[in-house]
Write a protein that binds this DNA or RNA. Structure first.
Lengths: 199, 199
DNA sequence: TCTTCCACTTACCAATAGGTAAGTTCAATA
DNA sequence: TATTGAACTTACCTATTGGTAAGTGGAAGA
């Protein structure tokens, strides 16, 4: 199978899995979206579980690649973390589907046969908390402290992204826009606070 | 139907919906757990959608009741918000199932016929942001600013709760415990920072 | 005693799920 | 030209889904 065909398959599958969840999407539904029959997909991937696994793997690769691009900026390591978080927030707000899928995975991975998120995301998370140690004043933080800090911001980003449709429903477009702006501002402010050297 | 019987039905349904999601739980599965047939449940509630709706309504009532109990403490309004958030975090960590269910609802409510979360949770959220205005220095904050601030902390609480199984899988019990402690400490610290009067 | 009502069951249904088996089509290669 | 192999399709299977219809059994009230 050509690489770009596979890419298109996975892109479509990712969108659908994000919208409806693993159990909410049938192989037939994905195939329909691609103009194929479900057996064509089964031919390529073997099973529904494997399609889903390929989608997760792709996301994991993407995330790590983006992270490395920011970590290796070189010049000013102390700003890397904030820059990456703001980038990640922007990326996530622009394309909430991925955050949705990861959130679902977080909810479901204990139930599904393979607890995928555990392994797919482990590398990403450890790489991320390593960035904290490069921030001035955080060199001596414990692993737990570094992780707790960074996870707090991942929470804020992902949860807000996932809330977008609901908040739009509650507040309407105009008021949501204001909230979005205020959220970004508050987020940025709290990053600065959090990154202050610990005493 | 006796009130406590209904309560038991809904408690069971809540747990199952939290674990597996709306589409992942069959009426028969809930009924099994209760030692009934699925038709007994359909007899009482009419449809699966209505069972789920009753579960959400119950959660919404609980949340608002807890919130009011904290808001009406009277004595020192400036501490109410922090006290409530810490209480809510403790409650959520102790019983992550509810956070899971609400997270799923956040993900799914646009898809299901009735966008339930919109209406079930609206009152709770508006009541919550009203608490912000009572904090010293925040009387003149805009609605968006108040909401953004409070939502940041709801994010941190809910996302962390939902992550618990996965993080346990990644880090193991001992390291997770340390992260949990660090998270609570960092959370408390960031609340203090956030509540500082805005300039 | 007869009736009514309620909680609940058995029987059934059409729709849909994931997956297997056995082709068919067609371009590339030998 | 003959063969192969990948990319599909049609046909079919069993299990499960939410839901309907038609009872059953027993306690309460007239």
């Amino acid at each position: 199978m050509p690489a770009d065909t596979k890419e298109q398959f996975l892109e479509t599958a990712e969108t659908l899995f994000a919208e409806r969840g693993f159990y909410g999407v049938s192989i037939a539904a994905i195939a329909d979206e691609l103009g194929l029959t479900k057996q064509a997909l089964l031919h390529h991937f073997g099973s529904k579980e494997k399609i889903y696994g390929a989608v997760l793997q792709r996301i994991s690769d993407d995330l790590q690649q983006q992270l490395e691009a920011h970590a290796l900026s070189g010049a000013e390591p102390q700003g890397d973390l904030k820059r990456y978080l703001l980038f990640f927030m922007q990326e996530t707000t622009k394309n909430p589907a991925r955050a949705q899928l990861l959130m679902r995975e977080l909810l479901d991975n204990k139930r599904r046969a393979a607890d995928a998120a555990t392994w797919y995301l482990k590398d990403y998370l450890t790489k991320l908390s390593r960035l904290v140690y490069e921030a001035p004043g955080w060199e001596n933080a414990t692993e737990a402290e570094a992780f707790a800090m960074i996870y707090q911001f991942l929470s804020a980003i992902n949860y807000f992204a996932v809330s977008q449709p609901t908040l739009l429903g509650i507040f309407g477009k105009a008021r949501y826009k204001k909230i979005d702006d205020a959220y970004t501002a508050e987020f940025s402010r709290l990053i600065d606070e959090a990154l202050k050297p610990r005493c």
